[in-house]
């Protein structure tokens, strides 16, 4: 009589069932499992503990784990929904789902607002805007005089801060995005639509088929 071993698939802490994540997001079960392949790769690049640490996130984005980048830091903080300093699998999938081409536009607009609200005051202030423009210039090795940076910030506030109270609130932000739709293009990642093509290794391992 033959003998076989049933090896139970063990997942790291923070793992969530793809079927649950697929029911909450625009991803199919197959795509969530493909994202798990990507997550495993990212979360084991420095410490193999099934969690994405900030250094691992930076390593994936910049090929170095010690590059300071304001926007990457903000994205990491928003992905870290539980605010415990790491990104778990469920957080990774839920956060990335906002970048899916089929995700609701309102979610993309709200996510970007939170990203730019550096101090989480519920508004984007002129000072935060200046900080972001200065950081972006610095991170791209560009230099503009402070006067020019002030002009850019002033011009933006003139356009967006329609209540003239020195800050952009949620309502003003939505109106501003309506007039400048190109600014939310960065909230869509086309790669998320063809995930199982990007990670074909998964299809070999999966018993699930969306086709």
């Amino acid at each position: 009589m033959g003998c076989f071993c049933l090896k139970k698939l063990r997942h790291k802490p923070g793992y969530e069932a793809p079927i649950n994540l697929a029911s909450e997001t625009p991803f199919t079960v197959n795509e969530v499992e493909a994202l798990y392949d990507l997550f495993k790769k990212l979360s084991s690049s420095i410490i193999d503990d099934g969690l994405i640490h900030k250094e691992e996130f930076q390593l994936a984005l910049f090929k170095t784990s010690n590059k300071q980048n304001l926007f990457a830091d903000r994205i990491f903080d928003l992905f870290d929904i539980k605010h415990n300093g790491v990104i778990e699998f469920g957080e990774f999938v839920r956060s990335l789902s906002v970048f899916h081409p089929n995700a609701p536009e309102a979610d993309k607009i709200a996510f970007l607002f939170r990203l730019y609200d550096l101090r989480q005051t519920g508004c984007i202030e002129a000072e935060e805007l200046k900080e972001m423009v200065t950081a972006l210039l610095c991170e791209n090795n560009l230099s503009l005089s402070e006067d020019v940076v002030d002009l850019i910030v002033e011009k933006t506030m003139m356009e967006a801060d329609t209540k003239r109270d020195g800050k952009i609130d949620d309502e003003e932000w939505k109106e501003f995005v309506k007039k400048n739709p190109s600014i939310i293009k960065i909230m869509t990642l086309s790669d998320l639509k063809e995930l199982t093509l990007a990670f074909p290794s998964f299809v070999m391992n999966s018993g699930v088929s969306d086709l």
């Binding site: 990507l38 990212l42 994936a60 984005l61 910049f62 980048n69 304001l70 926007f71 990457a72 994205i75 990335l96 970048f99 730019y116 805007l129 972001m132 423009v133 950081a135 972006l136 991170e139 791209n140 503009l144 020019v148 002009l151 850019i152 910030v153 011009k155 933006t156 356009e159 967006a160 501003f176 400048n180 190109s182 600014i183 939310i184 293009k185 960065i186 990642l189 790669d191 990007a198």
Partner: peptide, 25 residues
């Protein structure tokens, strides 16, 4: 011509903000 753009356009056009690299092999 950065002054003709608003700050959010500048940010969105820069490479500072791109998650595409997460998907690079």
């Amino acid at each position: 011509k950065p002054v003709s753009m608003n700050a959010f356009e500048l940010i969105s056009r820069s490479q500072s903000f791109s998650l595409d690299k997460l998907f690079e092999k």
